[in-house]
């Protein structure tokens, strides 16, 4: 059963009709039904195209959070061979919200790190809905250190509503863990490529995304605060999330104009979840291209260019 978003209602209705006709088609051999189905399919396709061509910021937020959207694990299983997950921060715990490990990406040994939101109720709880605690960010630092030591490029996949706000997380230094993770990203002498595949939620995202190349999927979002959080502070009501989403300029398209990201990866028609493999491959191709370029630089250059890139930000407005 496909999940439809609220603004996809007309598309869902068409899909329901098509489904009903197909069911009829199984029982009879009426040629008209097949005709009707293909007509409706063309209509649904057109509608989808029209809807997705002009998604609002809030609609993009919904697509970015779509429960069926491919998550970190899907990317790893399709793009990384011999993936060898590595666990733990060697200090307190293993944090399942951030997965990471060694693997081979199109012929290169790499370290992969990413937030995993989970795909069903059980795995969502296990992965804490992709909201990492300090241990997750400390594990990320440990893996980046290892990448540095063995001269392996790092690929990070960002998909989180934000770092977890909890008592334990505060006690164990959530702020410090994020700060050190950003510092680690800035310090390593290997290529660091980051892709926002769904939600890039604030400090929890930048902790992994201070990279040489920052890529974003077409309908992903990246923001200093969630639209709901922003609305509840500035509008004093979470109901204004739509307005906040517009104001925050959190879409890949806006961020490209602000020169905060380097490339937008087009998604299949109707969003990544409608053709997962195609989307994952497209991101893989882009990462490969950036990796090829970055591998031409030496360690000191990689580090300097990463710093300079962030220092130059903020000169371009909308």
């Amino acid at each position: 059963m496909q999940n439809f978003l609220d603004f996809e209602k007309p598309i869902a209705e068409l899909a329901g009709k098509i489904e009903g006709l197909r069911h009829l088609d199984d029982q009879s051999s009426d040629v008209n039904i097949a005709d009707e189905v293909s007509k409706l399919e063309a209509k649904a396709d057109k509608l989808l195209r029209q809807t997705y061509a002009k998604l609002s910021s809030w609609q993009k937020t919904q697509v970015a959070r779509h429960p069926d959207r491919p998550h970190c694990k899907d990317y790893i299983s399709q793009l990384i061979e011999d993936f060898t997950p590595l666990a733990g921060d060697r200090n307190f715990a293993e944090d399942y919200a951030i997965i990471g490990g060694l693997g081979r990406f199109r012929g290169h040994s790499v370290v992969v790190i990413g937030q995993e939101k989970g795909a069903d109720m059980h795995s969502r709880v296990k992965h804490n809905f992709g909201m990492a605690r300090p241990e997750g960010y400390r594990k990320a630092q440990r893996l980046m250190d290892m990448a540095d030591r063995f001269n392996l490029p790092v690929i990070t996949l960002v998909d989180t509503a934000g770092a977890y706000p909890g008592v334990g997380a505060e006690e164990r230094g959530q702020s410090e863990a994020i700060a050190r993770s950003i510092e680690k990203c800035l310090g390593i002498k290997v290529p660091l490529i980051s892709a926002v595949i769904g939600e890039g939620g604030s400090g929890g995202a930048i902790a992994l995304a201070t990279a040489n190349a920052v890529l974003m999927l077409e309908h992903s979002i990246y923001s200093v605060i969630s639209p709901e959080g922003c609305a509840s502070i500035l509008w004093r009501s979470g109901d204004q999330a739509k307005e906040a989403a517009e104001a925050l300029k959190l879409t890949a398209q806006d961020l490209e104009k602000l020169e905060v990201i380097d490339e937008i990866i087009p998604e299949p028609l109707g969003g990544a979840h409608r053709a997962k493999q195609t989307c994952i491959k497209a991101l893989g191709d882009s990462i490969e291209r950036h990796l090829k370029e970055l591998l031409k630089l030496n360690g000191a250059e990689l580090r300097q260019k990463r710093r300079d890139k962030f220092l130059e930000m903020g000169q371009k407005g909308l």
Binding site: L186, Y222, V260, F310, L311, G314
Partner: peptide, 22 residues
């Protein structure tokens, strides 16, 4: 914390400030 009215550019001050102290 971050100045929400500058959106993502505020978030980018996190790495920028870390470059500074480094």
């Amino acid at each position: 914390g971050a100045r929400m009215q500058e959106g993502i550019l505020s978030l980018m001050q996190m790495p920028r400030s870390i470059v500074a102290v480094d």
